[in-house]
Amino acid sequence: MARAVSSRAKVGYTVAAWIVALLIFFPILYTIITSLKSEQEAIAGFDLIPSFTLESFRAVQTQNDYWKPFTNSVILSLGSTLLALIVAIPAAWAMAFSPTKRTKDILMWMLSTKMMPAVAVLVPIYLIFLRTGLMDTRIGLTVMLMLINLPIVVWMLYTYFREIPGEILEAARMDGATLRDEIVHVLTPMAVPGIASTLLLNVILAWNEAFWTIQLTTTNAAPLSAFIASFSSPQGLFWAKLSAASVLAIAPILILGWFSQKQLVRGLTFGAVK
């Protein structure tokens, strides 16, 4: 809708939009500001200008062993995503390029597993983890996160693969490509952007998962979501330190997230909105 808008109207819209945006962003902004304050400043009342001290960040790392949950978060989110991709890429490929009458039903069924409330299987999963020694292990939680995100991964890949025109694969076949050539030289290069987006979104979802991580870990395998949740009251960890821990927990994913806005819409709506 390219059309000239009076610059007065544009100023008005701009001011309104920025006010809304800053209000929505404010809690995050204020947390970042507080993380750069000393503890005394942090509880001294509303103040948007911190003293830019990094003492809270240092304290979080030394006193609370921040790196362990951080490492766990990285391992769990990347590990579960890679596992899911290994299982989902062939499945999505098959459903996109060799669909049968039941493909749509299978996809809908996969979606429906996502509708099953996590809490409904809390009891058996908890007991299985207790009895098999998987409790508080990274491997157990990795598999868990892989399973809960697998439907989304299959769906996302499916919608991306579907956009690769079948005629191109047929052209490759006519050009003498074997199945291996077809996958290596044609399909993979065309599918890589879609796979990358899927990976990105799934890492974000796994990083932020906060039901199973809290239920199935104590200390060893606890990622940041479980670690942070243990500070439900700020005793021992004060405002500035809590803010620093929060900033550290969300910063990597916030930055990843900014790069994945478009894919986010697609991924979370199962391709229904693009």
């Binding site: 025109p165 005629e167 047929e170 052209a171 050009d175 030289h185 065309m190």
Partner: peptide, 14 residues
């Protein structure tokens, strides 16, 4: 045989 497709089916990344 060689085929020319309706959509041309060129490999977009090459």
């Amino acid at each position: 045989l060689a085929m020319v497709f309706q959509s041309y089916a060129l490999y977009p990344h090459m």
